[in-house]
């Protein structure tokens, strides 16, 4: 079971990136990809990390044995945005903050869910941005970006999002 254990106190808390790894997988379960895109990339359901990998072995451990829509889920590390177009989910590492505009420009054309913890990621056209509230990991959603990419987000997901942007606010 890949669920998060809401144990308060006592047990040792999971680390920030353990939580984020689980969330990356869970986002996939609440997102719908266009059917054309779903049928095109044959092979496993890839969750990619672009740039310097903050997860390490945690992500692989989290995704091991999981599958979505009958496809087994695998973790990949990519260095270039171009390589990430075949991925379903791309986590953009904070190491790529400087190249963010360029990366998003590349990925906009592919049906890829972009996630990052770069501050104001969603304001820059990123789809899901991790934010920390105290020690709790939350997220913001840019619905305009996902709609543009042809991705559908479950209303359930939006319900638990800290903020949902509905109009494109490039720049900002």
């Amino acid at each position: 079971m890949g669920g998060f254990s809401p144990v308060r106190g006592q047990q040792s808390r999971p680390s920030e990136y353990q939580v984020k790894a689980v969330y990356l997988f869970n986002f996939s379960r609440f997102v719908g990809w266009p059917s054309q895109a779903a049928s095109e990339p044959l092979g496993p359901f890839a969750i990619c990390v672009l740039g310097k990998d903050p997860f390490g072995a945690v992500l692989d451990a989290t995704l091991a044995g999981e599958n979505i829509g009958g496809k087994s889920v695998v973790a990949r590390r990519v260095a270039q945005a171009q390589e990430a177009t075949n991925c379903r989910v791309v986590f953009i590492s904070s190491s790529e903050e400087g190249r963010l505009k360029e990366i998003l420009g590349v990925l906009d054309k592919a049906s890829v869910l972009t996630v990052s913890d770069i501050p104001r990621f969603s304001q820059h056209g990123g789809m899901i941005e991790f934010v920390l509230q105290g020690d709790r990991v939350r997220f913001e959603v840019n619905l305009a970006s996902t709609a543009e990419a042809g991705l559908t987000l479950s209303s359930e997901l939006l319900k638990v999002a800290v903020a949902v942007r509905r109009s494109a606010q490039p720049g900002g």
Binding site: G3, F4, P6, V19, Y23, N26, R29, F30, R136, V137, R138, F139, S154, E156, L157, K159, V160
Partner: peptide, 15 residues
């Protein structure tokens, strides 16, 4: 249950 799935998955008791 189905309305609480996201809250459970994303650890959001308020929701």
């Amino acid at each position: 249950g189905s309305n609480s799935v996201a809250a459970l998955v994303f650890n959001d008791p308020e929701s």
